[in-house]
Design a protein around this nucleic acid. Structure first.
Length: 411
RNA sequence: GUGGGUAUAGCUCAGUUGGCAGAGCACCAGGUUGUGGCCCUGGGGGCCGUGGGUUCAAGUCCCACUACUCACCCCA
């Protein structure tokens, strides 16, 4: 039996980093006033088709979609926003006094795996509803940046762009199509395809020929409506007053249909081709699109696996006590259960019959602070032999005194 | 879906013009009758990815398949 392609086990050797990531993320999000929400991994296919956009690659070819036993088409969530928006509408969360949410969880996309890309992956994301003030755009960038700093991830750049709204973007896309159609012969095959489907993507193409054509293409700044322009300018001002450095990238495009106005990405050069660590933006039309009242929205998501890869490994002790039981007697087990009850520390009880030498070696390799050695001698004296693996000191104690000492140690 | 690279011990990888399957790390035991790290000695472990072909002889050469991986596409 092998694991599915693009799926990964997270083993005990990696779990420390995951816990740390989740802890730092939660603390940062909570300190910014965001509340956790958990939505199902499985939703009706229609939700994503309508929310993410029928013509996006995600919906067209990357979804894990199947019929359930009542012949309903269901889909493992390929992204987090649609589900949270659905929950917001379903549960009438507009009546709650707070509108800032976050989630941490698995997403699924049927893609060819590569560095920084899996079929099941995890995202930390936030969604904010009902606020169109540009301050909130700046806040989520600030929040994202703060979280990354607390994770000690450096060498990142923040890129931002304005992609317009329902009112001005269609006009811009039309102009873009007209322009690129004139230069069709210079475009790569992919971009010829994009011309009809998603001309914005041509701006983002890495092909040299396309890049030179794109350089003189119409700019959104010339077509954006006043509303979008003002909004974007205000976001930039807020970012500046927060001392957040950013790069304005007019070619920054997002792959999901629902984005409007302000979009941003946080990018590293250390992850090969998949360098986007976080990305997001505003989606002012989405909630209405999914059947709610017209409500502005904004959010972003970070890829956990990408963050994990950028985090430093920290060596830590994995166990506080290793119980080296040299006899068949229950005396050692009794000590172990007392220790667990009294100290609530991490205690590994050895059940394999092996030499003390091999147990010491094992305790050392496992990363253990104290080895509690218990054999016939100790049992007869009602004592324990305790070796401090860090200082290489060893003492024998009366059992009662030992337990008292250990309780005090961790206070 | 398309292209490149890789596939040998639990892990990282050697393996010469085709000629007995290797190292380091890890694991186990001993050196030390109840004491870790360093050192020394020994040990267990292999369908050499799968299937075909060439050959007296294939880990090695050829073909196909599969998996992994990187990249494209796209995205976190």
């Amino acid at each position: 039996m092998e694991i599915l392609r693009g799926f990964k086990d997270i083993l005990p050797t990696d779990i420390k980093k995951w816990h740390k990531l989740e802890e730092i993320a939660r603390n940062t999000l909570e300190s910014f006033g965001y509340k956790e929400i958990r939505t199902p991994l499985l939703e009706k296919t229609r939700l994503f088709a309508r929310g993410v956009g029928e013509d996006t690659d995600i919906v067209e070819k990357e979804m894990y979609t199947f019929l359930d036993k009542s012949n309903e088409s269901v889909t493992l969530r390929p992204e987090g926003t649609a589900g949270v928006v659905r929950a917001y509408i379903d549960n009438h969360l507009e009546n709650l006094p707070y509108k800032k949410y976050y989630y941490i969880g698995a997403m699924f996309r049927y893609e060819r795996p590569q560095k920084g890309r899996l079929r099941q992956f995890h995202q930390i994301g936030v969604e904010v509803f009902g606020i169109d003030n540009p301050s909130i755009d700046a806040e989520i960038v600030h929040l994202d940046k703060t979280m990354l700093e607390k994770l000690k991830i450096g060498d990142l750049r923040i890129e931002i762009n304005n992609i317009g709204c329902d009112r001005c973007r269609p006009e811009y896309i039309k102009k873009l199509q007209e322009y690129f159609t004139q230069h069709k012969d210079k475009l790569c095959e992919d971009c010829k395809r994009r011309l009809n489907k998603n001309p914005l993507r041509i701006l983002d193409c890495k092909n040299k020929g396309c890049k030179t054509v794109a350089k003189d293409a119409p700019k959104i700044t010339d077509y954006a409506c006043d509303n979008c322009k003002n909004h974007f300018n205000n976001v930039k001002k807020k970012l500046q007053s927060l001392n957040i450095e950013f790069i304005e990238n007019p070619y920054l495009v997002r792959g999901l249909d629902y984005y409007t106005k302000f979009v941003f990405e946080i990018i590293t050069d250390k992850l090969g081709a998949q360098g986007t660590v976080s990305a997001g933006g505003r989606y002012d039309g989405l909630i209405e699109q999914l059947g709610g009242k017209a409500t502005p929205g904004i959010g972003f998501a970070s890829g956990c696996e990408r963050l994990i890869e950028l985090m430093d490994e920290e060596k830590e002790l994995l166990f506080d006590y290793y119980i080296a039981n040299l006899s068949e007697d229950d005396y050692a087990l009794d000590i172990a259960s007392k220790l667990i009850n009294l100290t609530n520390k991490r205690i590994y009880v050895e059940y394999e019959k092996r030499s003390l030498k091999s147990m010491m070696k094992k305790a050392d390799r496992m990363g253990t602070r104290f080895v509690v050695i218990v054999g016939e001698n100790e049992k007869n004296k009602n004592s324990v032999l305790v070796k401090d693996m860090k200082n290489s000191t060893q003492n024998e104690y009366d059992l009662k005194i030992f337990l008292d000492n250990e309780v005090k140690r961790w206070l």
